[in-house]
């Protein structure tokens, strides 16, 4: 993958000097978004099934996907809606699960093309998901509004369409195929991390620490009672802080 060149080129990652047109950026982003969209369809489909089986109409399920555009958060929130939970509980749960977006948004804020307007930033922020973040943040060079728009568009519509179809048709795929597809997004994450971790010891060390802490939050007594959203956030903060302390990076000269 092209963006992985970042690790081998040391710390001199400088914003590409070649001027890029907005439509070039958009098309490039669009291309990068297609595998994400493919990964979303089965997950969205599952979400549609879950929502419909809980008595939520296909239209409402689609509205949830169009307005929330997040997997774990809307799965959990929708479960609570189906269970008739109070609004406060729905709000708190959704927030805790989505707290990791604070980190992702902060991380991406450092890669935006300078001079990106407030309104454009606000629109781009809506498109931050685990997967679009993964692809955008590992992109070499800066991130423009057009790029992000291109990157997000097919996953966005794939997410909505998958939800609608899933809710409409209950189970068409054999269960074995459906459950096999559950691994797709994680396999994609592995494909994103491993090549970088192979080249850079600091990246490998940071990732391993994050995984260990994440395992603690999944299995260790007491720690496992903490919600998954917090577990991931704490794991990522701990690992990145250790990484930054032990392997501080040279300043990037891009200002």
């Amino acid at each position: 993958m092209a963006f992985l060149a970042q690790d081998t080129s040391g710390d001199k990652v400088i914003t590409k000097t070649t001027p890029r047109s907005a439509s070039m950026d958009f098309r490039y982003g669009l291309r990068k978004g297609i595998p994400i969209a493919l990964g979303y369809v089965p997950v969205a489909f599952t979400f549609g099934l879950l929502a419909a089986s809980g008595g939520i109409s296909p239209w409402m399920a689609t509205v949830i996907s169009l307005t929330n555009l997040t997997s774990a958060g809307q799965f959990a929130g929708t479960n609570l809606i189906i269970a008739g939970a109070p609004l406060l509980e729905i709000a708190v749960t959704t927030f805790v699960i989505n707290i990791r977006y604070l980190l992702m948004s902060l991380s991406l804020s450092q890669k935006l093309t300078s001079g990106t307007s407030l309104i454009k930033r606000a629109i781009m922020a809506f498109g931050i998901t685990d997967e679009t973040f993964a692809v955008a943040s590992l992109e070499q060079g800066d991130i423009s509004f057009s790029y992000m728009l291109g990157l997000v568009s097919s996953p966005y519509w794939g997410w909505a369409a998958g939800t609608f179809v899933g809710a409409l048709i209950c189970s068409v795929l054999p269960p074995a195929v459906q459950s096999s597809m559950g691994i797709a997004l994680y396999a994609m994450f592995i494909a994103l991390i491993v090549p970088s971790a192979k080249r850079s010891k600091p990246v490998l060390a940071t990732t391993v620490i994050a995984v260990v802490v994440s395992c603690l939050f999944t299995w260790a007594p007491h720690l496992r009672d903490i919600s998954a959203g917090w577990g991931i956030t704490i794991a990522a903060i701990t690992a990145s802080a250790v990484g930054a302390l032990v392997f501080p990076r040279e300043e990037v000269q891009d200002e």
Binding site: L103, C215, G231
Partner: peptide, 18 residues
Amino acid sequence: RSFLYYVPYAVLGAMTFP
């Protein structure tokens, strides 16, 4: 800045495993 550089890998690692 170093911290934010490592964030993507840490987040992805923690989300994937276990």
